[in-house]
Each structure stands twice: as C-alpha cells, then as structure tokens.
Design a protein around this nucleic acid. Structure first.
Length: 582
RNA sequence: CGGGACGUAGCGCAGCCUGGUAGCGCGCUUGACUGGGGGUCAAGAGGUCGCAAGUUCAAAUCUUGUCGUCCCGACCA
C-alpha cells in the first residue's frame, strides 16, 4: 500500500481526552477515531491489525476442531426471556422496538450468542452420535456500558470471537475445554502477547470452571493475584488464600469489655475517626440473607467481603446483603452497629477475625460500640473460613509463599457452562440408552480488539508503537527520502514491487515529506522493519534496514535488500510460532 | 447512578475573574529557499466560541437550563 493512497492521520500532539498509552497511541498513530463514548472507527491501519488477530484466531480455532459460522447481531428478546437473561443483563442489553406494520417487534443487539446458538443446536442435534461439536464466530457484540472508558479497551460495541462447545458427556466437555485452552495459549503466543491464564469465577453466565486470559498491564481493570513459586494465578474475585484457622480458645488480653457511645458512627470510617482507631482493630459485621436466613459474617475492618466465598462456606445457593428490617430484628439496632457479642443469628467468621485482640465492634445497640472484644470470652467460634478478597502478601494456597498483585486486561475467557442454556432452551439429545439429556455446553470468548489494544498498551517506547510482526498492520515500511529523485524512486518502487511479490506486507511512504517527518511517523506507527533509501546510500549502492526495536540501521547492498528483509520477516514470524510454556 | 473536570479552527491551548472588532502554536493552501529525525521566510484559507433561553445598548465572557466528552467511584463479559 502506498501511504499517499491510504488514510493514515498521524498526530504529533496527544489528544486531551486520551489518558492511557493505548488510547493515546492508537489515536496518534492513526489506528482509530472516536465516534462517541464507547464507539470507535477502525481506520485502515487499525483495521488491518484487527484482521490479522482475527486470522490467527481462525487458524487456531480450525486447528482445534472448531467450525466457523455467523449469527445475527439482531436477536429476538423472547430468547432472552426464556433464559432469564433479559432481566439479568439489565441495562447492559441494548433493546430495540422495531415497527413492522401495526405491531412492534422486540429485539436486542446481541451482547453474546449463547441463546442464539443453543436455539439453533436444539433444532439440529438429536443424538449423542452428532456430538461433540464446537462452533465459533467472529462478530460484533453490543453491551451498553454504563461508563465506557480506557479508549478502545472498554466500549459498547466490540469484536469478539465466541465459540461454543456441545457435548454428550463431561469427558467430552473437558476435552473441548482443554482444546480451547490450548488453542488460546497458541493464539496469544502468536500475537506476541504476554499473558497469564488465571482461575476465574464464571460469573452470572453460570457454570463451574473457568479461566481468564489476562495481559498484565498497569491500566488493566482486573486484579490478578499470583504466586511466583507455585505458579498459582487467579483473579481477585476467585483467589483463595492459604490462611488457616487460628487458635480459637481465647485471647490473653485482660482488658475489660467496655461499651462506648458512638453517636451516628455507623461506618468503619466514622467509628475510626470517632474512637481514633484503625480499621484493622475493628470487627466488621455484615448481615447477609443466606437462602432467606440471616447470617452474620465477621471480617476484619479493613477487609472486603467476597460473596462467592461466603456463599460456598455456607453451602447455599444465593446470598445477599440483608435489608434494614432484618438487620433491625437480628441486632436490635439500626444499620452499622452489628457485632458478634450477643447477636441473634448464626455467625461465621474469616480466619483473621480471632487474631484481633481488644477488638472494636458494634454493640447491637444503635449508636453504641464495644471496645476490648476478645475471642473465647466475649464471643465464640467453632471454626473460621476464607471469606474475604485476597490481599497482597497473603499466603499462596499451594505453596504458602506470599502472593503478589498485578493489574490485567482480560483478553480471553473460557468456561464450562454445563446445561444452563440447553435446559432452558430445550437443547437435548438422545443417549445410547434412548434417554433424553440436556447437551453439556462450554463457551469461549476472545476480545479481538483487546488483543490489538492490549498490545498498544504494553508494547511501545517513547517514540511510538512496537508491533509484533504478526499483528503489525504492515510488516515492512519503505521510506524513499527524496520522492522527486527519479533514480531513487525507481529503486524504491522496484523494492516495493519485489517485496509484495514475495508476499510481504509492505507500506510504501511515497509522501513528498521531509525525512524527519517520515522517520517520526515510522516510529509512531511501529512497523517492525524499515527500509530507508536515501541519496547517499544510493551512491554507495546500499539501503538501510532497521528493525523498529534496533538501535541503529544496518547497511545492505541494494541487490540483496529484498532477500534480506524477506528473511528477517519470516524469521520474526517463526519466532512467534514457536510454542513456549508461558 | 453518585462525585469532579472540561467544551473556543483538524489537533493542543490562551482569552472568561473585570462584558466592548476572536487570538497563539502545530497542521492545511500557495510561492521561494531548504533537503537524513516533526525546517525557514512570505502570503493565505479556516471559528454562528457545544446548543438554548435569560440579563444587557452590547455576551466566548455573567445567569439558568440542556447536550456532549473525560476522570474517580458504583456496576459490568
């Protein structure tokens, strides 16, 4: 492609609205332009990168036995009603009421395609003999983000590869899941991404096993907890800690229990301010409704409750924070004054709670707290649980070593769905004993734009982007320094044609611009290899070849340049193809 | 949805407090010079100051409303 024929609007200055590196660089390098909050146009360079990522995904999906199809973005709302997700998605679902004649047709723009594909499969799969099957598509998804942000990382419209596996047995599901997991590793490897697979909650989508693929990045929205020595990695929602139940027999503090008046101090923060104490000294008491039954959950004041862990510890289906009335009946007090001493409901506690001696906690009486609360004497526990979000430095559940935190951008997610959708949409098959069973499903997503944005976010220097060869919009950039020098242009044109002939993706900077401008733009858009043909070089019979990441250029005789660069390109590509354990 | 900031030329910004002919840098056009890391000189084009209402002889500037964008939080595959 000739630069002069493409649309590559580079910018010298940083747009005021862009804050994180990927957003700034993608705008400056002419990859994207914003249409409105959460919706971006992909310009020629940006779209090429997206297409390259999509192509790698296709190749690896096919290699893993998945088959591509294409489903509509427009979906009838009725399908979402049948799975209960019309309500579950809430404002995230983009709903449309379309007039057809004298009636309204209710539809939605697909936020994902479980409903559509399960409906399809329910009509065409009848027998275990037709399973397993894995289908995928690359499609635009619509999710109304309450607050779009981070440029292209969190948008209301985005490209996603979504795959769905259908199995007659758990073994089949596990095989499909493992195949997808392995394919994801190869995809991200080939895209030149540093990634970490982490254990994850499967979330409202349901299911029982799930991994997320994260790009470690300072501006990532997700928190990853990991252990260097054991390799354990999980997202914050899911991360276990290796803490143990401490001694519950009693504290050796002799300070007497004391009730203090704390008017209007119903929050940890307010009590700390009022009593001049720190949150670590407090026992936070949260009243939950656990399958409709109130339970008090005790945590150290500075810790965050993890509802998934609480739900599992209680062994119940659902938990939610109790309403004011329930709290009143259990504590005889308004919100914010609950405590374990004399509370009238079941109590479960996090491992760290008994370790607090002379704790401060609510007195189950409005506007009052207790001081010097101690385990054994003032309240009793039979055991303790892991009920809170992990903290930096917590022991790893595998090795016991302190765990570290890092931010991550989620680029992929694989999970075992089970039969949630097949049951609600009637996707059943006949097994070998002529019994009807729901199909066991798995679902596997990759944010295609996020691959590109994640690379922009993590691979750059002070001059611009540093694309890996596989995702770079072009592999080689040819810069003739004097476009009005006929001899020089003839050489450059020949090189451009020859490289194209060899199947190399070449961008030809034929603009009549000053060298400085071309060099700056070259660095900004980050094409991996650059060939410069200048007046001096031409006289010496050489071209300058420079990798974007190299310190300086290498002089290559003109008649060998094409060969040399083609070799560099194929070497760089095969380097990324190598399988390596990440 | 709670809190905060900002809307002036394609981009970055000043002017607003204290109302009185809309400005700077980059980019763009033309010409000359220049010619290996965002050049120099000269001459130009480009803005109903987000929109609406109000106050005023007069509003980019003051008031109110509204729309939009960004940031923090809540929410969220």
């Amino acid at each position: 492609m000739r630069w002069s024929q493409s649309l590559i609007p580079t910018m010298k200055e940083v747009p005021a609205d862009a804050e994180i590196p990927s957003h700034q660089l993608m705008l400056r390098a002419g990859l994207i332009r914003q249409l409105m909050a959460g919706a971006y146009t992909y310009l020629p360079l940006g779209w090429r990168s997206v297409q390259k990522a999509a192509q790698i995904i296709r190749e690896e999906m096919e290699a893993a036995g998945a088959v591509e199809l294409h489903m509509p973005a427009l979906q009838p709302i009725e399908l979402f009603d049948r799975t209960g997700r019309n309500e579950a998605f809430g404002s995230v679902l983009v709903r449309l009421d379309v007039t057809r004649g004298d009636r309204k047709v209710h539809m939605a723009l697909g936020p994902t395609h479980e409903e559509v594909i399960t409906d399809l499969i329910s009509r065409h799969i009848n027998s275990y003999r037709q399973l397993p099957l894995t289908l995928y598509q690359i499609q635009t998804k619509f999710r109304n983000e309450e607050r779009p942000r981070f440029g292209v990382l969190r948008t209301s419209e985005f490209l996603m590869k979504d795959a769905y596996s259908f199995a007659s047995t758990l073994e089949q599901l596990n095989d499909s899941y493992d195949a997808m997991y392995a394919a994801y590793c190869r995809i991200f490897q080939r895209c030149g991404l540093k990634y970490i697979p982490v254990e994850a909650e499967s979330g409202p989508i349901g299911g029982d096993a799930s991994h997320e693929f994260m790009i470690p990045a300072e501006n990532g929205e997700d928190q990853i907890v990991y252990c260097e020595s054991s390799g354990y990695a999980a997202n914050l929602e899911r991360a276990e800690t290796g803490r143990k139940t401490p001694d519950l027999s009693g504290s050796n503090s002799s300070a007497a229990l004391e009730k203090v008046h704390t008017p209007n101090a119903g929050s940890i923060e307010a009590v700390c301010k009022f009593l001049k104490c720190s949150p670590e000294q407090m026992i936070k008491t949260l009243i939950y409704l656990s399958d409709e039954k109130p339970v008090a959950v005790l945590l150290r004041g500075d810790h965050d409750a993890n509802e998934g862990k609480i739900r599992r510890a209680l062994g119940v289906k659902s938990i939610e924070l109790a309403d004011e009335k329930t709290i009143q009946s259990v504590t005889n007090a308004g919100i914010g004054f609950a405590g374990p001493v004399g509370i009238k409901c079941d109590v479960i506690a996090d491992h760290d709670v008994p370790l607090i001696s002379d704790a401060i906690t609510g007195a189950n009486e409005t506007d009052h707290h207790y001081k010097n609360v101690n385990i054994g004497r003032d309240y009793q526990l039979e055991t303790t649980y892991d009920l809170r979000d992990a903290c930096e430095g917590d022991p790893c559940p595998k090795s016991g070593e302190p765990m570290k935190f890092v931010h991550g951008i989620e680029v992929g997610h694989v999970f075992k769905l089970g039969t949630k959708y097949s049951e609600s949409l009637g996707a059943e098959f006949l097994n070998e004993h002529e019994k009807r069973e729901p199909i066991i499903m798995g679902c596997y997503g990759i944010g295609v734009n996020r691959i590109v944005a994640g690379l922009a976010e993590t691979c750059h220097d002070e001059n611009g982007l540093l694309w890996p060869i596989s995702i770079a919009p072009y592999e080689v950039l040819i810069i003739p320094l004097k476009t009005d020098d006929e001899d020089l242009m003839n050489v450059a044109e020949k090189m451009y044609a020859d490289l194209k002939e060899k199947g190399v993706d070449v961008l030809f900077d034929d603009r009549p611009a000053r060298p400085g401008v071309k060099f700056k733009d070259a660095d900004l858009i980050g094409i991996p290899f650059r060939i410069v043909i200048g007046g001096k070089g031409l006289q010496e019979g050489i071209a300058e070849v420079k990798a974007r990441t190299a310190e300086g250029p290498e002089k290559i005789p003109l008649d060998q340049t094409v060969e040399h660069v083609a070799k560099l390109v194929s070497e760089a590509k095969s380097e990324l193809q190598k399988s390596s354990a990440t």
